[in-house]
Design a protein around this nucleic acid. Structure first.
Length: 560
RNA sequence: CGCGGGAUGGAGCAGUCUGGUAGCUCGUCGGGCUCAUAACCCGAAGGUCAGAGGUUCGAAUCCUCUUCCCGCAACCA
């Protein structure tokens, strides 16, 4: 039995999450996970905070608090944002936790024993005033290619040259601004990716079906030869390198971060009979899917797979549905340049249905997409509210007004034999197949199509006039439409869980039961049929507009 | 010639792998309806698919070149 191990890139515990993170990673992974679970698949959705690295150290120092305290704050902040967005992880842990350290050390030890990790000497810059070692980003100077004065230690922003920090002219320490910098002899441990080129190539060949923003890119990188990477740093925040001669060195954040997927799974099953390795990470029936943004492709397609291959503590990734970027008004989200917005404020103002709907429609599957406030207004008001929200409202209100006790028509009418139902099934299958293929735009289109068919049916049959001259005709229309409302409610549960729940809440308890509607989600209607045979279809809650429209004035304010 | 992706009606996108009279959502215009959140339904206008060349009976779709946009190696979805 195939089971699904879904991971979402560990958010870095160093700042607020923005819509790009949500639309690119957490939302698609959440929709996918909810969908597969509803389809009856065994699936876990794993993520957690990524909490090591220099950037965190710097910002914690700036904030004047301890590292652990600092990352705990962001962990809580991210968690609460995910809650508001109805992003439902099975586990959301922390890489600063002890269980993660233990798992990471196991990986290191195995890789080290197998010769995949080697010590190499290297020159490093050290500030002679503050005594800090200065890895790439912590030194600035003059580019030796183009002469640009503020080149960073890794890349010259002007000419794009990949900088060797040792060759920078007039290097300056980013910690204390001192220019008294010397190259000293040092050493680090390297992950010897180049040793595994062959194994990597033959594995990666089998992934040609990955999307074209991923496969050709990785293939071209790999064909240039896998590059060994330093996986230790001279820092005082992180996991200690478990070697005698590595005093004062920590594992580099990018080494331990992906192991976080594994360690968080371990945490999830702690105290149960489930073995996180044999039942999940090493199970050949497990399908491993990493949801990530495009910047993360190399780690998830090359580095972590090679680590897994050698350590044999994880199977290799099966699917890598990496997304492009969601931009804000045409430019990347960036707090430092002011191109940002407060995700918490936004979700508090508009709610998860509206934002999930808009962001899902913006999931940058093949190319960068663009968030705008007016886009939110247009999308939510014109599509979700006018199509779906309005159909539910017009239908339920009319129904309750005329048939407060419900209708039972099964004696003379079979909804499941109608053309409308056939059309519904076609769209439902399209919707679900698209979700399974990570094609979220297509899925939404199919879902909207159901709303359109429903409105069309309702309008064509004019129950408002038929009810005066041909009551049975009107009854069929209303009865059918209310069934559609129920079905729409069920099928929204992966995309908009709140709205879905609110729709279902209008129906009697038996229909609200999760096991009951899950069958329907899967396209099995027997139980629904027998329910309808013996019960009138009754609305138990006074209908009201479920999808409130967004006030254009609020949007104007936000854009102003 | 560093690498990868992209360029399709006013806007946002699908179609490109597996060539055969250009499709979807929104917007616009005209009509209908009044159950409903000024919502819904019907119809119309509007593009020759970044540019040039080539292959072909036929190309948005394959090939070549050009232009422009985005991203790119280790903090950043």
């Amino acid at each position: 039995m195939t089971k699904y191990l879904v991971t979402a890139a560990l958010p870095y515990g160093n700042g607020p999450l923005h819509f790009g993170h949500l639309a690119g990673v957490y939302l698609p992974a959440d929709i996918f996970s909810r969908h597969m679970k509803l389809m009856g698949e065994e699936l876990i959705y794993v993520s957690g905070s990524d909490e090591h690295g220099v950037a965190i150290m710097q910002n914690a120092q700036k904030a004047g608090i301890g590292y652990k305290e600092y990352v705990d704050q962001w962990h809580q902040d991210h968690k609460s944002l995910f809650d508001k967005f109805d992003i439902e992880f099975d586990v959301f842990g922390q890489t600063s936790a002890e269980y993660h350290r233990e798992e990471t050390l196991k990986w290191f030890e195995i890789l080290y024993e197998k010769g995949a990790i080697e010590k190499q000497d290297e020159k490093q810059l050290q500030c002679q005033d503050c005594k800090n070692l200065l890895p790439d980003r912590f030194v600035e100077g003059e580019c030796y290619e183009c002469g640009y004065e503020n080149a960073r230690g890794d890349e010259c922003p002007k000419c794009g040259t990949w900088i060797d920090p040792l060759k920078l002219k007039n290097p300056q320490c980013k910690f204390c601004d001192s220019k008294n910098i010397k190259a000293i002899d040092s050493f680090q441990w390297y992950l010897m990716l180049s040793k595994y080129q062959k194994e990597f190539d033959s594995w990666f060949e089998t992934k040609s079906s990955w999307k074209k923003t991923v496969f050709p890119y990785v293939k071209s990188l790999a064909s240039e030869g896998l590059v060994n990477r330093a996986i230790t740093r001279d820092l005082d925040w992180g996991i200690d390198v478990p070697l005698d001669e590595a005093e004062g060195k920590k594992l580099y954040v990018w080494f331990d971060a992906p192991i976080g997927y594994v360690s968080n799974t371990k945490k999830l099953f702690e105290g149960t009979d489930t073995d996180y390795l044999n039942d999940w990470w090493l199970n050949k029936d497990t399908k491993l899917v990493h949801f990530i943004g495009k910047d993360n492709i190399i780690f998830h397609s090359i580095i972590f797979p090679v680590m897994s291959l050698v350590s044999e503590r994880a199977k290799l990734v099966d699917d890598l549905p990496a997304n492009q970027y969601l931009n804000l008004s045409g430019a990347q989200f960036s707090k430092s340049s002011g191109n940002s917005l407060d995700s918490h404020q936004a979700i508090d103002k508009f709610g998860s249905d509206a934002l999930r709907f808009y962001l899902a429609s913006l999931i940058p599957e093949m190319q960068d997409s663009n968030f705008t406030w007016s886009g939110l207004e247009v999308k939510v008001n014109n599509e979700l509210a006018n199509n779906i929200g309005n159909f539910i409202n017009r239908c339920l209100k009319f129904y309750v007004k005329n048939y407060p006790e419900g209708i039972n028509l099964t004696e003379k009418y079979d909804f499941f034999e109608t053309e409308l139902f056939t059309e519904f099934e076609k769209l439902r299958v399209e919707y679900q197949n698209s979700l399974k293929d990570y094609q979220f735009q297509k899925a939404i289109k199919a879902l909207m199509g159901i709303g359109f068919s429903a409105n069309q049916y309702f309008s064509d049959r004019e129950p408002w006039s038929k009810i005066k001259e041909d009551v049975p005709h009107a009854e069929v229309t209303l009865y059918t439409s209310v069934i559609l409302v129920y079905l729409i409610g069920i099928h929204f549960s992966s995309l908009l869980p709140k709205l879905s729940h609110e729709i279902r809440a209008h129906f009697e308890e038996g229909l609200q039961n999760e096991n009951f509607y899950q069958k329907i989600y899967q396209g099995e209607y027997e139980e629904l049929k027998s329910y309808l045979n013996s019960n009138p279809l009754k609305i138990i809650k006074k209908p009201k507009g479920l999808v409130p429209k967004i006030d254009p004035d609020i949007i104007k304010d936000l854009e102003g």
